[in-house]
C-alpha cells in the first residue's frame, strides 16, 4: 500500500517558477519585507483591541498557531500528516510547569527548558516514526503521543504533572519572564508582543527553510522517496530534521502557552486536543504557510462563540468532513484556486 500519488489535502500549490537565482533572491527579500511589516503591524494590535477577553483569544490563537504551522510544515513539505504534535506542545508546557513550580527555576529559563523537553520528545518520536508514511505515520504519531498522555495522568505522576487535576504554575513574585511578573505574563495585552514575535519569527524561519536547498530535498522526498535514494540522497536524515524542526516550533508554542495561562490542563495531551490542531490546520489549508494560522484563528473564534453545550467537536468534526469532501486544500487552497482561475480568465 505505497501510494506515492500526492494527496489532494497536501498537494502543493503550483507556485510560479522562479527560474533565475536572482528572481529567487528577490522573492526572498520581498518575503522578508512582508514578514517584518507583519511583525510590526501586529505589535499595534493591543492598542486597537482593548477588550481583554478578545485579546486573550488572539493570544491563544497565536500560540496554537505555532502548533498548527508545525503540523502544516510537515504536511506541506513531506506530505506527512501528524496527530502527534500535541505531545510536543504538551510536553513543553509540562516542562515549564515542572521547572518553575517544582524546581523553582526562573520562568525565562523554564521556557527554554520546556522547548528543549518538547524538542527532545520530537527527536525520540521522530526516530521511531519518520520511516513510515501515510497511514502508518498518522497512527504511530497518534499512538505515541497518547502514550505520553497515559503517563501524564497516572497517579504516580501526580507530583510532576498533577495527574487529572492539571498543573498550576507558581513561582516567586520577584521572578519574571523576560521582564514580566506572573501577573503581567497572564495579561494578554502585555504578553501579546512575545506571542506575536514568536509566531512571525517561526513562520519566517519555516518559510525560509522551505525555500532553501534543504526544502527542495524535502520536496523531492515527498514526491518520490525511492527515486531520491536512487539519486544518492539520504532520505531518513532530512525527514528526521524536518520532523524535529516542526516539533520544536510546536514546543515553543506549548512553553509560551503554559507560561501565559499559568496552568497546564491534562487535556493538552489528549486525543481531542491532538485532533483540534490538525483539523484547524486542515481547514485552513496546508498549501500555504498561512493556511494553518487562518484555520487556528477560526477554530479559536468558533470555540469562543459556538461552543454551546460543549458541542464544539460536533461542529469541528462536521467542518473537517465538509472540507475534506468538498474543498480539499482547505480555505486558503480554495481561495488560491479561485485567484488563479480569475487571473487566467483575465489573460
Amino acid at each position: 500500500m505505497t501510494t506515492t500519488a500526492p494527496t489532494d489535502v497536501v498537494s502543493p500549490s503550483a507556485a510560479a517558477p522562479e527560474a533565475s537565482p536572482r528572481g529567487r533572491l528577490k522573492g526572498t527579500l520581498v518575503g522578508l519585507g512582508i514578514a517584518v511589516a507583519t511583525l510590526l503591524a501586529g505589535l499595534a494590535v493591543p492598542y486597537v483591541v482593548t477588550d481583554t477577553y478578545r485579546m486573550s483569544l488572539l493570544v491563544e490563537g497565536t500560540l496554537l498557531s505555532l502548533l498548527a504551522i508545525g503540523i502544516g510544515f510537515l504536511a506541506r513539505h513531506l506530505g506527512l500528516i501528524s496527530l502527534g504534535h500535541g505531545a510536543f506542545f504538551g510536553a513543553a508546557a509540562y516542562g515549564v510547569g515542572i521547572a518553575t513550580t517544582n524546581w523553582g527555576w526562573s520562568p525565562t529559563t523554564a521556557v527554554g527548558f520546556g522547548v528543549v523537553v518538547g524538542t527532545g520528545f520530537a527527536v525520540v518520536m521522530g526516530l521511531l516514526v519518520v520511516r513510515s508514511s501515510g497511514f502508518g505515520f498518522l497512527m504511530l504519531t497518534l499512538a505515541l503521543s497518547q502514550a505520553l498522555y497515559a503517563l501524564s495522568v497516572q497517579t504516580s505522576a501526580r507530583p510532576l504533572t498533577g495527574a487529572h487535576d492539571g498543573k498550576l504554575l507558581s513561582y516567586d513574585r520577584d521572578m519574571t519572564f523576560l521582564g514580566l511578573a506572573q501577573r503581567d505574563v497572564m495579561n494578554p495585552g502585555l504578553f501579546w508582543p512575545m506571542a506575536w514575535i514568536a509566531l512571525t519569527m517561526c513562520a519566517t524561519v519555516l518559510w525560509l527553510v522551505g525555500r532553501s536547498r534543504f526544502g527542495t530535498t524535502l520536496e523531492g522526498i515527498r514526491e518520490n522517496e525511492e527515486r531520491m535514494r536512487f539519486s544518492g540522497y539520504d532520505t531518513f536524515g532530512p525527514r528526521l530534521v524536518a520532523f524535529v524542526l516542526s516539533g520544536a516550533v510546536a514546543s515553543l508554542g506549548g512553553a509560551l502557552f503554559a507560561i501565559n495561562s499559568g496552568y497546564v490542563s491534562p487535556d493538552i495531551l489528549g486525543f481531542t486536543r491532538a485532533g483540534d490542531s490538525l483539523i484547524a490546520a486542515l481547514v485552513g489549508g496546508f498549501g500555504l504557510l498561512v493556511g494553518p494560522i487562518v484555520g487556528t484563528f477560526l477554530f479559536v473564534y468558533a470555540q469562543a462563540n459556538f461552543n454551546f453545550g460543549g458541542n464544539l467537536h460536533l461542529f469541528t468534526g462536521m467542518a473537517l468532513i465538509l472540507v475534506l469532501v468538498f474543498m480539499p486544500g482547505g480555505i486558503t487552497g480554495s481561495l488560491q484556486k479561485l485567484y488563479h482561475r480569475l487571473r487566467r480568465g483575465r489573460r
Binding site: T7, V9, F135, G317, M318, L320, L324, V325
Partner: peptide
Amino acid sequence: RSHIELGLITFGLALMAERL
C-alpha cells in the same frame, strides 16, 4: 481519494459521534 483523507473523515465522524 487518498486513503489519508478518508481516514481523516472517519476521524471527524468519531469526534461527532462522541458528542452525539
